[in-house]
């Protein structure tokens, strides 16, 4: 039983970051309908900025904040410079442009920081506490706490604030929000900036575990996208739940089936969930209708 609990606990800690990545995917999609395949690369950019600022002598917490800001800026610049001119084109043009941005970001990272793998220390100690026979480290606790705080604030902002309601309205009909004096363009920019900040935060949080390499963003994009789809594209809560579910499923498959099949088992489970419930775990009917 302790093995099972350990696999679940470690999965929750790892999945929290996937959830943050997925939340960024969902937020951008919810507002603009665009799936941002450069999201993971923005996360890595945030992590690299965290590395540099930390290297200049700033406390790690401040450096991580700089990474979050860098992620937000990258998201905003991407929306304003690359995606906005494409909104009147078919949606696929914007989505393909995000793939291009992903390649350019990887190249820029390699040019600026080089290709040697880099590392960052954790925000908290990685020496574990032992609760019974289950190990759980302060670093994992911080990661989980940050995810809970940020996602709660985000869910509140999307559900209860004027901007958040505007984003949801944009998803239904961007023309209608104009009648209420809200600029869709400003909402798009805000959505991508917040999504970028979430990516930057996820990058700064996950780097102590995986290190920094220029192309790592691709795998983060895949994880974030999978979390968002499983949770229900467009649902921030769903993305967090989806991220945790993927990590826990991978861990359980590694322990009880085979590590070689962990991804296959996890993604097969996603397919099965989507076959039964096309809107994902917590997606709303609107998204289902829109996708149809």
């Amino acid at each position: 039983m302790s093995t099972f609990i350990q696999a679940v606990v470690a999965g929750i800690a790892a999945g929290a970051v996937y959830g943050l990545l997925g939340a960024g995917f969902s937020l951008a999609y919810k507002t603009t309908g665009i799936i941002n395949f450069a999201h993971g690369d923005i996360a890595m950019l945030g992590a690299y900025v965290t590395f540099s600022v930390f290297g200049w002598g700033a406390p790690l917490f401040v450096a991580a904040l700089a990474g979050v800001v860098a992620g937000g800026l990258a998201g905003a610049v991407m929306e304003r410079g690359v995606l906005r001119p494409l909104y009147k084109r078919p949606l696929v043009a914007g989505i393909l442009a995000t793939v291009g941005v992903s390649v350019v970001l990887q190249s820029v990272i390699q040019l600026v920081w080089g290709s040697l793998p880099l590392t960052l220390p954790s925000l908290a100690s990685s020496t574990p506490w032992r609760i019974g026979s289950v190990a759980f480290s302060p670093a994992q606790a911080v990661l989980l706490a940050v995810t809970i705080i940020v996602s709660t604030a985000l869910i509140f902002a999307v559900d209860r604030t004027r901007v958040g309601r505007g984003m949801r309205a944009c998803a239904q009909d961007s023309g209608v929000v104009v009648l209420f004096g809200i600029s869709p363009e400003r909402l798009y920019l805000t959505a991508f900036a917040i999504a970028g900040m979430l990516a930057g935060l996820a990058g700064a949080l996950i780097t102590p575990t995986i290190g920094l390499t220029p192309s790592r963003g691709v795998s983060l994009s895949v994880l974030g996208f999978a979390a968002a789809v499983l949770g229900g594209l467009g649902s921030v809560t769903g993305a967090i739940v989806g991220g945790i579910a993927i990590a826990v499923l991978r861990n359980l498959a590694s322990v009880y089936v085979s590590a070689g099949y962990a991804d296959a088992v996890a993604y097969l489970a996603i397919v099965l969930v989507l076959l039964v419930r096309v809107r994902g775990l917590l997606g709303d009917d609107l998204e289902t209708v829109r996708s149809v």
């Binding site: 093995t3 696999a7 470690a10 999965g11 790892a14 575990t209 795998s219 861990n251 322990v255």
Partner: peptide, 8 residues
């Protein structure tokens, strides 16, 4: 990005 399943 995570090896906890294998380590467990």
């Amino acid at each position: 990005t995570d090896y906890s399943g294998q380590i467990v």
